[in-house]
Each structure stands twice: as C-alpha cells, then as structure tokens.
Amino acid sequence: MTVRTAELLMALLMAAFSGYLMIKSAELPYGWIPDEGPGGGAWPFWLSAIMLICCGAMLVNWVRGTSAPSMSRERFFQPGVLRDSGSVAVALFLTIGVFEGLTLGGVPVLPALGAYVGIFLFMVFYVGILGRHSFMTTALFSIIVPVATFMFFELALKIILPKGMTEPFFLPIFKYFGLAGL
C-alpha cells in the first residue's frame, strides 16, 4: 500500500467516523431549546459536522494531489516496519488480553493469566525474540520488570492490578506484607 492510498483510506475512515458521531450526537437535541440554550447534542453534532467538512477537504486535496501524503508513492510501511511496529502492537493486544482474559462474541479467545504473567510474556517477547538479547538478559528483565511493577503499584500505591487465575498465588505475599485486606 502506498502512502497515497493510506491517505485516502484514512480520510474515508475518518469521514465515516464523523458521520457516525453526527448520528450519535443527534440522539440528543442539537438545536436551540428555549430558556435552556443549545441542546445536549449541539456541541458534538456541529463539531462532527466540521470534522466531516475537513474530511471532504482532505479528499479534495487527495484528488488534486496538493498535500504531501497524497503525492507520495512510497510504501506506507517500509520493509521490516510492519514486522517491528506491527508485531509490537499485536503483542500489546495479546498482553492486555490476558490481563483479565478476552472473550469475543461469547467465545473465550485468551485465558485470564493476569497482569504479571502478561507483562512477563511481553518482556520475554520483546527482549528475547525482538531484541535478540542473551538468555540471561531476557530472564533478568522479564523477572525484574513484573516484580518492580508489583512492588511499586500494589505495595506502594495500593493499586491492584488484575491477576486472573494467578490470584491465589498472591495471597501469601499480601499476607506477608500485612495487606491481606486488599
């Protein structure tokens, strides 16, 4: 896909989103209500309308080739970029998915392994596979980062992260630190 094609697709996508926003805003009155002023939908409705006009302008620029991306015939993702940025985005998706588990359309897709297992696996992927660091470095980072996260967020800030099926393993730790009530 060239940058020019991506520019067109993004403008169309954003135009569709603007249209959707206008429809959703119109669920509330978007005109003038006597003694109350503008209706609750007026602000987002008219702003979404401006967004739609902007998308129209982007499409005109695209047709005329007057903006830099609309003139570029370069590849949108240079070779290797999709492998790097794309795989990281997918890894983030999977990591977040295992925090509390993921169900799509009633079908369980990812198990609830909890935040710490998720972070551990993410570190193994990034440092070990993507970064190609040694086994020792990978092991060190994959263990230190979740442990430090636990100590800072749970023990110091008292912010409880989702633990999914690993919850029982944490109870003795909380008890040890006198935080059984958390």
Partner: peptide
C-alpha cells in the same frame, strides 16, 4: 530493545492505574 518494553509496560499499567479499568 531493553528500554522500549519497560516504557510499554509503564504505559499499560499507567493507563490502568487511575480508574483501574481495563
């Protein structure tokens, strides 16, 4: 490749922390 994953983890946990909502 050592700094980036740490920052990503900070982002994930930092985004969760204020409202504790997935």
């Amino acid at each position: 490749t050592l700094l980036a994953p740490v920052i990503f983890v900070l982002c994930l946990v930092g985004g969760y922390a204020p409202n504790q909502s997935m």
